[in-house]
């Protein structure tokens, strides 16, 4: 089963590589550089710092979003009397594209890392909050009753019933959030910064240095895949029961 998964992974990578090679050879103007020219353009001393800065921004943002949205979502899902007041606010603000607040964040929080991290965290916060709350809402009452008859208190109910029951939903929302956060990362790194993969891509673009631009693009992809894989591992470790 596991071997199977890896084989398919490797096969997909080979196919994608082929598509890339074919496109680089057929699309004229060097807009799609060949793999070889990208390897030549790669230099660890410029790539590594940019990659690490971007990774730090995303990881910190995701961390902040998780530690705020998960507890709040669990609480609201379990306490309809509070959710009644909060739900309309979420409903009204959820569809607003949060990236339009970047200028305001720049003014309020400065143009440094804080406003960048805050914007990514805000977007992801909503995704995790809504999924977690809906998950916590749908935990079956008899599970909680069973725990209470076995001597559990409210804290035990969260620990042994609500959290484990919601964990698959939380991890799913986290997986979606990774894609979102990398996209927002590119956006926030295109303003007022001299580092990060987004900046690297835009710089190279400005100079029509397409191989360099691709180094950045691949860097962003690697960042996303890495984080995604971490969530996969967590899911396999923590939610074995849901995958049977």
């Amino acid at each position: 089963m596991k071997r199977h998964r890896y084989l398919i992974g490797i096969l997909s990578a080979i196919i994608l590589f082929f598509v890339w090679v074919v496109m680089s050879l057929t699309i004229s103007g060097g807009i799609i550089p060949t793999p070889l020219s990208v390897v030549r353009a790669f230099s660890l001393s410029t790539f590594a710092p940019n990659f690490l800065v971007s990774m730090a921004r995303v990881v910190v943002s995701l961390g902040i979003a998780i530690i705020t949205a998960v507890p709040l979502g669990l609480f609201l899902g379990q306490n309809p009397q509070w959710d009644k007041w909060i739900a309309p606010m979420i409903f009204l603000t959820y569809p607003i594209p949060k990236i339009v607040f970047l200028p305001i964040f720049f003014i309020l929080l400065g143009i440094g890392n804080i406003s960048k991290v805050a914007l990514i965290a805000l977007v992801v916060f909503y995704q995790i909050l809504v999924t977690t709350r809906d998950g916590a809402r749908s935990v079956k009452k008899p599970f909680m009753d069973a725990l209470v008859t076995l001597g559990g208190n409210t804290r035990d109910v969260y620990r042994h019933v609500v959290i484990p029951a919601c964990l698959p939903a939380i991890l799913t929302s986290l997986r979606i959030s990774i894609g979102t956060s990398v996209a927002i990362l590119f956006f926030v790194e295109s303003f007022a910064t001299r580092n990060g993969l987004g900046n690297m891509i835009l710089d190279a673009w400005g100079m029509a240095d397409y191989p360099m631009m691709f180094v950045g693009v691949i860097g962003m992809s690697v960042l996303g895949i890495m984080l995604y894989e971490i969530v996969e591992i967590l899911e396999r470790k923590l939610c074995k029961w849901a995958q049977l």
Binding site: K140, P142, F143, D145, A146, L147, T149, L150, H160, V161, P164, A165, L167, C239, W241, A242
Partner: peptide
């Protein structure tokens, strides 16, 4: 008083 419930007795995650 421990009780065996009609449905959903066991915790699927345990």
């Amino acid at each position: 008083i421990p009780m065996i419930l009609q449905d959903y007795g066991l915790f699927p995650w345990k």
